[in-house]
């Protein structure tokens, strides 16, 4: 029974599944409320919820922030895998500290600071998930550029989104070759399972040999094409940035979003004074 279970989990965790989840996260939620907001407003919003919680130790305030970013995360329709990762991440970050504190002779007094820490980490993570997963990659990079982020970086974001499915497909192809032609060790016993794991890791590392060569071929064409399309020309001109950013427009929805957030924050600041 146990084996069946682990097998089915392994089945689920195929490249195909991962690819699907990542693609879903990257391209599947471009029609949500969050995705429709102006990237500059959202980045500003993120700066608040990404930094301020670090400086507060008030449980009520932190809880309030946490509730707000949870709602925005739901609104952004984030892929399940990302949320799962978020859960694991938060748990493992404070979970291990908690255990270690107990081990070195801590007591209940260390639990409150750890709760605070957990809330901080969770709030900040969810705020970043909302903004960075919820926003269309291209709008995100435009927003970052408006704030003076280097051109090369914002280009990298769009390019990464463009290349991701291609790279994944190629990686999958190479791994498939190994799967079809290779001969992994049996994984019936525990020893076999460990050997199997080691085999898998080895295959992944070996897979990067063909992948590096294939990607090298690609990047040459890409860079040549960028040259023709004037990418470097634009990078040296200030006007290019203006032309590109002219599409950004702040709308009513953006103000509304800010106002609601502002109202909520003032409310919890008020409440935090009493509890």
């Amino acid at each position: 029974m146990r084996e069946k279970l682990s097998e089915s989990i392994f089945d689920k965790l195929t490249m195909n599944f991962l690819r699907n989840q990542v693609l879903k996260n990257a391209y599947g939620n471009d029609d949500t409320v969050i995705a429709g907001l102006d990237p500059r407003i959202l980045i500003l919003w993120y700066l608040f919820f990404g930094i301020v919680p670090w400086f507060s130790g008030n449980v009520v305030f932190l809880m309030g922030c946490f509730i707000l970013v949870s709602i925005t995360t739901l609104l952004a329709r984030i892929a399940g895998l990302v949320l799962l990762l978020f859960g694991i991440g938060v748990f493992s970050q404070t979970g291990y500290l908690f255990l270690a504190t107990l081990l070195f002779g801590g007591d209940a007094s260390s639990i409150v600071p750890l709760l605070v820490l957990t809330l901080k980490i969770a709030t900040v993570s969810l705020a970043s998930i909302t903004v960075f997963s919820g926003l269309d990659p291209d709008r995100l990079s435009n927003g970052l550029m408006w704030y003076g982020c280097p051109e090369r970086f914002s280009f990298s974001i769009s390019y990464a989104y463009r290349m991701l499915p291609v790279l994944m497909e190629e990686f999958e192809g190479v791994l498939l070759s190994y799967r079809l032609r290779g001969n992994p060790p049996d994984c019936d016993t525990l020893k076999g399972k460990i050997r199997y794991l080691i085999y898998q890791v080895k295959i992944i590392i070996h897979a990067f040999y063909p992948l590096m060569l294939n990607t090298a071929k690609r990047s040459r064409t890409t860079v040549e094409a960028l040259e023709i399309k004037g990418y470097r020309y634009a990078a040296s001109k200030k006007e290019a940035k203006k032309v590109r950013l002219s599409t950004l427009k702040v709308s009513f929805d953006d103000f509304l979003f800010l106002a609601i957030s502002f109202f909520w924050v003032s409310l919890i600041i008020f409440l935090s004074g009493y509890f």
Binding site: D138, Y159, K229, A234, A240, R244
Partner: peptide, 24 residues
């Protein structure tokens, strides 16, 4: 010939207008 690598932007219109945008 490997035209796929010459498409550098994530969406269609974006890629089609990329060169024009760069040349201002």
């Amino acid at each position: 010939q490997d035209f796929e690598n010459q498409i550098v932007r994530p969406t269609v219109l974006d890629d089609a207008s990329f060169a024009c945008m760069n040349y201002l």
